[in-house]
Design a protein around this nucleic acid. Sequence first.
DNA 1: TGAGTGATGCAG
DNA 2: TGCATCACTCAT
Length: 183
Amino acid sequence: MRKLDRAFYDRDAQLVARDLLGRYLVHRVGGLERVGRIVEVEAYLGPHDLAAHSSKGLTPRTRVMFGAPGHAYVYLIYGMHHCVNVVTEAEGRASAVLLRALEPVSHLEGRTQGPGLLCKAMGLDLRHNGADLLGDDLYVAEALPMPPLRIVRRPRIGVDYAGHWARRLLRFYIRDNRWVSKP
DNA sequence: TGAGTGATGCAG
DNA sequence: TGCATCACTCAT
């Protein structure tokens, strides 16, 4: 499978979010290839987006989000779950796309419906924070040929604190796909 | 609907 | 320093 290049990520976060749907997240670990088809994502637009971590400004935690596109931003939430994002747009824009659910393809353990379960199934944790998605261990691959997708837009999950930003339609998923976390 | 869990960021 | 908060999940 062909790896997506830097230019793919160096675009508007909403475009990247939509285009990630149907493509494959790959994690090579212990000689095994863990693969899942991306079926649900959320876009976080940058420091002006009050739901985005980067709205707190440049901190040790958000450093990766402010960095170059095509890197993984992984963080720990509620003391037990990990979430993985891909950094988008030019360095400093601090936008990213959260991966929320996968359709299992190979070597995934357990459920993949939800950002925490996704990371658990893929074996992703804080060690992967800042990982370059153009490396050989963790990347997103083309789906060829790419079938036409029916994409649904909804408000993002769990960001009610963000005022009107909580109502923006920045969550995208593949319609009628059984692996979506909250249809 | 509420508990569990610990890093994070801000107030002091 | 201390404390409220949190892009979640699972059992009631």
